[in-house]
Amino acid sequence: MALLEVEDLSILFDSRNGPLLAVDRVSFAIARGEVLGLVGESGAGKSLTGLAILGLLEPPARIAGGAIRLEGHRIDNLPERALRAIRGRKIAAIFQDPMTALNPLLTIGRQLEETIRVHLPLDRRAARARALALLREVGIPDPERRIDAYPHELSGGMRQRVVIALALCAEPLLVVADEPTSALDVSIQAQILGLLKKSCREHGAAVLLITHDLAVVGEIADRVAVLYAGRLVEIGPVEAVLSDPRHPYTRGLLAAVPRLHAERRRLAAIEGAMPRPGAVPPGCAFHPRCPLALAPCRAAPPPLHAVGEGHDAACFRLEATAGACP
């Protein structure tokens, strides 16, 4: 059984002009200890999906259908009280900006101890010892001294290390990491990604890594799911999706990424822009921008088809996307 199952998840936004569908029947699963990258452009619905799993969706957004199961039990319809026993304990979160995740008025030691004691039956001393061990583990230099520091006394990279320690302090089964390195400097980004992967592996936690950066996914994910306009368009092992993408959007996205080891040249840009919720065209949401679109693509959204071992793509023109990328 998968650790987390997301089945036909739909998320609506209530707006003045009626409900807008932001996530449209998305399904995927995460196995224990696995890193799944969820990629897409801004507005594709990736962060909303993460928030729904955490039970943190706030109005005007709401779950409109589907189910989310953790270890086989539904968690999408739980009352807040029951949810609180899961959030932090079984599912932890890491967000983009570490400053907003930390309380500026409390020392990092205090925040770690509090979180540890809410979830684990430890006294103050044991909680402090665990906090110190975690800080050491996430690479905070001189943890005995830093444990009494306030968040503003730490650099951005150090703060994100503390947030990772905070996420892992109750031994969660799943960590939802939403753009965990996007606010950090390039040289710090690699440190934090390496740390996230290593710590989660050592603690046996699975990771849902939400990012817009395909290179980050290639770096640490086992599998990758691609969202476009609220729909899952491709999912599969990271090697298969990045080296043999089958959905025209995934192919376009990969062709549009500037490469470190390529000559100066024009990029193969995808013309147009992703439709906003409420303006998604009928049929395949990508058809107006798709070079391969035919009549059926405009009529109905394509279902996911298996294109390889655990590799699915939602496209009617799969015969045209076999083989080398354009």
Partner: peptide
């Protein structure tokens, strides 16, 4: 050290 889509899962020493 920067994530590189063409050289995945390579061994390297991140900039400390």
């Amino acid at each position: 050290t920067v994530p590189d889509i063409d050289r995945r899962h390579r061994s390297r020493s991140p900039l400390a």
